[in-house]
Nucleic acid binder design. Structure first.
Length: 157
DNA sequence: GCCAACGTTGGC
DNA sequence: GCCAACGTTGGC
């Protein structure tokens, strides 16, 4: 079992939409390192759902991989903002996964809180200059984040 | 809105 | 293959 964190801007796709849809294809990732992590995901892996580029950035819920090794269909769609003219159905460039909703956390675990509790060497997310939208989470760090969720005082979101 | 950090592109 | 220019991410 592996653990991950995936970022989404809530104006693009939020945890509320994820809860409504129950499942979605995690399309639109156009960074090779992030794609390589997506390729390593297995059915049943857990992913933290992170809201980025918003007033209070942070982890807002949990999803689970329900299908692995999917071809991202948006790369072939000329009308999609994620269209990639260099990708063809014969040799696609971008793979991804389908995820299913698990839970929306009662409180956000804010980036500020995560920075307080974790060192940059344990959690990629709080490493300076990090821009990865898909990243691995070590199992022990995953457990500690879940405990934070239970213990963290109510904060606004 | 600013800007640091970083990835990508393309000329050479 | 180098590297300057440019575009994007995303916190603040």
């Amino acid at each position: 079992m592996n653990y991950w964190l995936m970022k989404s801007e809530p104006t693009t796709y939020s945890i509320e939409e994820m809860r409504r849809d129950r499942t979605c294809i995690w399309d639109g990732v156009r960074n090779y390192m992030a794609r390589n992590f997506l390729q390593q995901m297995k059915v049943g892996d857990f992913c933290f759902f992170y809201h980025s580029n918003t007033k209070i950035p942070g982890i807002v819920g949990l999803v689970r991989v329900s299908e692995a090794h999917l071809v991202d269909p948006t790369q072939f769609d000329e009308k999609s903002p994620y269209y990639d003219p260099k990708a063809t159905p014969e040799s696609p460039r971008w793979q991804t996964v389908r995820v299913e909703f698990v839970e929306r956390f009662p409180q956000i675990i804010s980036l500020a809180e995560l920075k307080n509790y974790f060192d940059p060497d344990e959690l990629l997310l709080v490493r300076r200059g990090n821009r990865l939208s898909v990243m691995p989470i070590a199992p022990d760090i995953y457990d500690r984040i879940l405990k934070l969720k239970l213990n963290s005082p109510a904060n606004p979101w």
